[in-house]
Design a protein around this nucleic acid. Sequence first.
DNA 1: CATTTATGTGTACTGTTTACACAAAGGTAC
DNA 2: GTACCTTTGTGTAAACAGTACACATAAATG
Lengths: 227, 227
Amino acid sequence: MKITQNIKIAVDAVVFGYHNNQIQILLIQQKFGKKQWALPGGFVLDKETLDEAVIRELKEETGVKANYLEQLYTFGATQRDERLRVISVAYLALINPNNYILKADTDAKDAQWFDIYDLPELAFDHKDIIAVGLERLKAKINYQPIGFELLNTKFPFSDLENLYQTILNKKLDRRNFRKKLLSFGILQETDQYQKVGSGRPAKLFKFNKKKYKELEQNGFHFEIKFA
Amino acid sequence: MKITQNIKIAVDAVVFGYHNNQIQILLIQQKFGKKQWALPGGFVLDKETLDEAVIRELKEETGVKANYLEQLYTFGATQRDERLRVISVAYLALINPNNYILKADTDAKDAQWFDIYDLPELAFDHKDIIAVGLERLKAKINYQPIGFELLNTKFPFSDLENLYQTILNKKLDRRNFRKKLLSFGILQETDQYQKVGSGRPAKLFKFNKKKYKELEQNGFHFEIKFA
DNA sequence: CATTTATGTGTACTGTTTACACAAAGGTAC
DNA sequence: GTACCTTTGTGTAAACAGTACACATAAATG
């Protein structure tokens, strides 16, 4: 079988973090040309799967390890990169505060977090890729418990609430939000409280992943719907 | 920039049709080796986008033109094809009864429809790809009006109802289904009736795509939820 | 013309979503 | 230490959406 195809395949990661009530994205500065900011990513090696490629590139370029990763979309326009034809398989990754810190022992010195609504000029079609990633996050947060991946293991309800409000960009009723989330039975109260400045201390909760998987098996479906 | 990457990129299409109250899938018989059945698809040409590649391959291999097409998932395992490393971008396609007929003027003589629950042995990981496609169809039919793409332009309500029941593999209440669908205001009554054997003739309806797009713009969201 | 088959229609019940306000726990400023 | 500020925690009534359910209508068939 002879195929003369001159296309290279790469992976790129849209990595979201949640910090200071903002959705942030992890970008790296290119080392060549205009030194534009770009998504972490790179060419797939002959002997690794796509998933392996993203994980490797993320580690090499930023030092972080995502605690959620899913394939997003494959971008295959003919003029994405002016140098040669590159098809890129984009991934969506979520990082929690523990993994948020960029380890300096790698190439990570060129990596930086940006507010999703205040992005620099981006290389290639990376702006489009980010848009698709954000859309996916917005949609998915409503029907899969992926929001927890952006929070600490133990978190006050207000964090969860703010996270949803930030991502969905709308105000939610505190009482109804809490009631709904608790009704699923996938949140576990801890006996710890968190004090931040003034105000009543907040009870900390944990996401009970095991319980969620169990319920899911039995046909339970996480779903939030607020006007 | 030098990259030594020895990977080829292909596209494959999971093409669904609806016939005799069955979900069917379009497969082609391979011309080499064990002549197994496989999804229509092939290698991407250097100067075409991924979408263009699927459309071209579908036409060449089966003579059909999908009236709905969306990217599904990219399969990048290292051992998909024993001959060489191939990464495949899979697409989901829907065909309506008008396009259902395989035109014999092409390579289509090797193409055939199969009941989705009665598949032959399949090449590569195509069985997995079909599973992903079916899952997507099942999920998406609930929140996007893609079911209509599988029906004639004018259809009786019972067709729509059977389509949903077949795809979701569960019985739906006729009255509630009709009430819900009509409540959206995206179905247009025609003044035509369809008689099939005995029984009261059924009024024919049309999907009003323009109206749907209009409503969608104003924040309307197609959504079906039945126990 | 009696029987069979498929279409077409309404209502009461149940569960879910929404809107909404005040008490409790702690901090801060005087 | 007390008045005030800030944040957390909680219930209920009204509106809406989903569910369960049965009989009349239009045609074909024998």
